[in-house]
Design a protein around this nucleic acid. Structure first.
Length: 914
RNA sequence: GCGGGCUUAGCUCAGUGGUAGAGCGUUCCCUUGACAUGGGAGAGGUCAGAGGUUCGACCCCUCUAGCCCGCACCA
């Protein structure tokens, strides 16, 4: 016997354990022979992470798809795992070391540090996996993968090494000295995508740079980063800029005008270049090629020296910096500058440089200035463009097939608009910097000879062989210390998790995957890279569909963030309302192209829905309705039963269509309405008289129908609410007699049953009951009072229906007597149902004033409608141009309205005047 | 600056070239044997504004206003 109420907290863990014990989620579990495969790779959550609302949404949607396909009998694999998250993980462990006052990473050394990180991962890395299980995610947990292998011979590491080596061999990975986004706090390069533009209120400093040989003449340059002036190697002006025509001419003549760089004394040229915007500021720009991306390009065009001013922590290096000192006379000014600034960090250096220029009267003005400054997304400190050697992927080449696959529809974005975002990025893609100056990650498989030549190989021995050949003798090599960007390994996820580079049966069966479900925030980070890698290594795009869902926001629409303190923990919601309620909420809110704002009231509503389902199940149990046993809908004779069987089939078809179109909201809504508004509100109410009546064929059939439809409901809802449905399935008799013990691997409903006549009849009945109830309420008939009704003008069909459903009408409309009459009795409230009139005689029950008001209101509404319809039908163009059936429909509606008005008027006339 | 999205009931959101819908909230009634985490009945909307296309526009097009989100960016 089901408990009086559903206790999610007690039941969910038990159900989860049963799924696990039965291996219900193992790849291919429950699949029909020769079934098509349906595989999904989880967007691997960060090992350092814990479940947030975004994960709850993302994984709910995946689970709905996966459970649905599993029930359809497909060979399903939902591949789980986590991401080693290089920077984030290393930060977590370093912070922990600091808190415990243990030696830091560098003091500890690489090997020891990595041991510590692995230890941390083994202890804490499983958190999010456990949380996903609480959500009900039906991944094949036995296949859990991690983007980083414990040793380089582990398959996940072999995959990365092979990918690197192959791409290098194919010329798609190369080493280059370029400006990178340098994070001075984490002391590593990061990719463009890991840079966040932050609006900062700063200043714009205008400096006077003295023109050499023209005493008292200056050129004014403006900058937001004064400290970089130490590395200036030119001033640029636009060739079109009239103000600087003489400088431009000098430059063109090959004898550029020189500027004496203050504080440093370096002579630097004024060059003409398209880059400066004559409209902006003074039109002259100081050029620091080693510390600015635009200046780097200008420097390249004019062959300017690049003076790197910083060490890895962005402290100024002046005295021990040959590039800086090159060509400088050892003046007292230079010495003073070095003494004042050498070793200083960039922020203090800025203040000091400004002060020093101020003293010399070289500051024209300082304007308050708001601009965007790039920050590291992990460290939150300003990024410093920094000149270093790094490894790059030639993303532009790899993007070509990745673009084509989406263009030709091999891979489709849902909603389609996201294609544009994907195209825009892919078409303007920059070289992808993949080396990171970290320890936690895949160490780059490159070894350097004494002259710096790189040998890329899958292992040291191979590199050494290549080196021996190259140098003509065995040569000691040094391995690259850096590791690869985590996304490099994530890009291989759809096939590395299936065993690649080994040729496994899983790889053959489950690649390419079917659908990728993810948020738009990682289209670039992850989706694009998987497309590139998948096409390159597997020759096929990794998925046929990419379903992009929205971002979860708080109830007011703000993005959830720890700093705002508006983060809602999905685990709290699960504790409070149950995982099923949270999941159903997520599904209901997952409308395409829209962000998700889960309101507590909404979750509560779906918790109530779970309760409703539970109560309906108790009802079936109490009434001995068998669930999950074979039943042929065609054998049903009772109209209500044929009706609910029809409606159930329609609901299943609608849910199926919605899931197929990724309309999770519609799927959830359809299921919700069918269960609550059709099955509970009407079907169970309609069959109560039968179930409470004498034993017999009708009662037996009704029990079996009610139980069978409940079974269909459990299956229908299972992808959305797996726990409660599984629990009811397990508890309701005859549970032990079923061939398949678990709902999770039971077949998806598919009756195909349809009886339109039965549907029409019951819909008539429902309308009758609703109308009577409505009149009762509006004319203030006491809710408990039993009333008689008189039906006039009834057709034979209506009379039959009345007889067939007398018990239901009596119960649902509180009608104690149905009389048939030739005409409506006077002094009664009247309802028009089709051709018939249902009258509720006064008998002192009806509030006459209320009834008059009701009729007047209804008449008014109908009159307005007729007015509108007449205007339409009176328009000759409408009649001429609108489709036949539309015109016909309007005519019918007009006739119907006119008929109803007549009846209302007649009823009004029959009311006694007070 | 470029691109995308949004504006429909008090709130959160569906929606279709031809009667404007749901959930929550709200009002009234109901301790009826599955369920008060419930049942029944209501109220509530110039579909942001202005033009255009059309027989007909909430829907298609243009503009305007407001809000949101990406991407890029000026020293």
């Amino acid at each position: 016997m089901l408990e009086k109420t559903y206790d999610a907290a007690a039941i969910e863990p038990r159900i989860a354990a049963e799924w696990e014990r039965a291996g219900a989620f193992k790849a291919g579990a429950g699949a029909k022979p020769d079934a098509p495969s349906f595989s999904v790779v989880i967007p691997p959550p960060n090992v350092t992470g814990s479940l947030h609302m975004g994960h709850a949404l993302n994984n709910t949607l995946q689970d709905i798809l996966v459970r649905y396909h599993r029930m359809k009998g497909d060979a399903v694999l939902w591949q789980p795992g986590t991401d080693h998250a290089g920077i984030a993980t290393q930060m977590v462990v370093e912070r922990q070391l600091m808190e415990r006052q243990q030696p830091g990473r560098r003091a500890m050394g690489r090997e020891k540090f990595l041991e510590t990180v692995w230890k941390w991962r083994d202890e804490s890395g499983g958190t999010i996996i456990r949380q996903l299980k609480r959500l009900g995610a039906s991944c094949d947990w036995s296949r859990e993968r991690f983007t980083l292998g414990r040793t380089e011979s582990d398959q996940m590491s072999r995959a990365v090494i092979k990918a690197f080596v192959d791409l290098h061999r194919d010329g798609l990975i190369y080493r280059d000295k370029r400006l990178v986004n340098w994070d001075p706090k984490l002391q590593t390069a990061i990719s463009d995508l890991e840079v966040q533009q932050v609006e900062v209120k700063g200043s714009l400093w205008h400096f006077r740079y003295p023109i050499e040989g023209e005493e008292g003449r200056f050129i004014v340059v403006a900058t937001t980063r004064p400290e970089t002036m130490l590395g200036d190697t030119a001033v640029a002006v636009n060739p079109e800029d009239e103000r600087y025509a003489d400088f431009v001419a000098a430059h063109r003549a090959g004898k550029p005008v020189m500027v004496r760089l203050p504080l440093v004394g370096r002579l630097i040229p004024i060059v003409a270049d398209e880059y400066p915007d004559p409209e902006a500021g003074s039109g002259a720009v100081k050029i620091t090629p080693a510390h600015d991306f635009n200046d780097f390009e200008v420097g390249r065009r004019h062959n300017l020296p690049k003076i790197n001013l910083y060490d890895a922590e962005s402290n100024l290096v002046l005295r021990a910096n040959p590039d800086f000192l090159a060509g400088l006379a050892p003046t007292p000014e230079l010495e003073a500058t070095i003494a004042a600034l050498d070793g200083m960090d960039r922020f203090n250096a800025r203040k000091r440089v400004v002060a020093m220029l101020e003293e010399r009267g070289l500051i024209e003005k300082i304007e308050p200035y708001t601009h965007t400054v790039p920050h590291g997304d992990r460290s939150a400190v300003p990024i410093e463009p920094f000149l270093t050697d790094q490894w790059y992927v030639d993303a532009k080449k790899m993007a070509v097939p990745a673009l084509a696959a989406v263009r030709d529809g091999t891979t489709q974005f849902v909603p389609r608009n996201w294609e544009k975002t994907y195209f825009d990025w892919m078409e303007n893609i920059q070289p992808w910097c993949i080396s990171r100056q970290l320890w936690w990650g895949h160490q780059i498989p490159a070894w350097y000879g004494p002259d710096g030549k790189a040998f890329v190989a899958t292992e040291a021995a191979e590199a050494e062989r290549a080196a021996a050949q190259h140098y003509g003798k065995p040569t000691a090599l040094k391995r690259d210390e850096d590791v690869l960007d985590t996304w490099f390994s994530s890009g291989l996820w759809p096939f590395s998790t299936l065993g690649w580079p080994d040729e496994t049966p899983e790889l053959a069966r489950y690649y390419p995957t079917a659908t990728l479900v993810t948020g738009f925030d990682i289209i670039f980070f992850w989706v694009a890279r998987m497309m590139m890698m998948g096409l390159h290594f597997m020759g096929e795009a990794p998925f046929s569909e990419v379903y992009i869902h929205g971002i979860v926001r708080d109830e007011r629409g703000a993005k959830m963030s720890k700093t705002k303190g508006n983060v809602v923990d999905p685990l709290d919601l699960i504790d409070e309302y149950g995982a099923d309620a949270l999941r159903f909420t997520m599904a209901s809110l997952a409308t395409p192209g829209r962000d998700v704002k889960p309101a507590r009231a909404r979750i509560e509503g779906y918790r109530n829905f779970a309760t409703k389902l539970w109560q309906a199940s108790r009802f079936c149990e109490l009434n001995e309705c068998p669930v999950g046993v074979p039943f042929e809908p065609e054998t049903a004779k009772e109209t209500v039963n044929r009706w609910i069987l029809t409606e159930a089939n329609r609901a299943v078809a609608a849910v199926e269509a919605a899931i197929g179109a990724f309309r999770f909201d519609e799927a959830a809504g359809t299921a919700y309405r069918f269960v609550w508004n059709t099955y509970c509100d009407w079907y169970l109410e309609l069959i109560k008289p039968t179930l409470g009546g004498p034993e017999g064929e009708a009662k037996t059939e009704t029990r079996r129908t009610a139980g069978w439809v409940l079974g269909e409901i459990l299956r229908l809802l299972h992808p959305f609410m797996p726990f409660i449905t599984e629990e009811i399935w397990a508890k309701l008799p005859p549970a032990s007699a079923r061939p398949l013990p678990l709902l999770a691997i039971s077949p998806w409903p598919d009756s195909g049953f349809e009886d339109r006549a039965a549907a029409a009849e019951i819909n008539w009945l429902i309308r009758l009951v609703e109308e009577v109830r409505s009149v009762r309420a509006e004319t203030n008939i006491p809710a408990g009072a039993q009333i008689p009704v008189v039906v006039s003008d009834a057709s034979a069909e209506t009379r039959e229906r009345l007889a067939r459903h007398q018990a239901a009408i009596a119960r649902l409309a509180r009608v104690n007597e149905v009389q048939l009459a030739k005409s409506a009795p006077s002094g009664s409230a009247q309802i028009v149902i089709g051709e018939a009139i249902v009258s509720i005689p006064l008998a002192g029950l009806i509030d006459l004033g209320a009834e008059r008001a009701r009729l007047a209101k209804e008449t008014d509404r109908l009159t307005k409608e007729i007015g509108k319809l007449d205007a339409k039908l009176g328009n000759p163009e409408f009649v001429a141009k609108a489709p036949e059936e539309v015109v016909e429909e309007q005519r019918e509606r007009r006739e119907d309205a006119a008929l109803r008005i007549d009846r209302m008027q007649a009823a009004l006339a029959r009311l006694p005047s007070s």
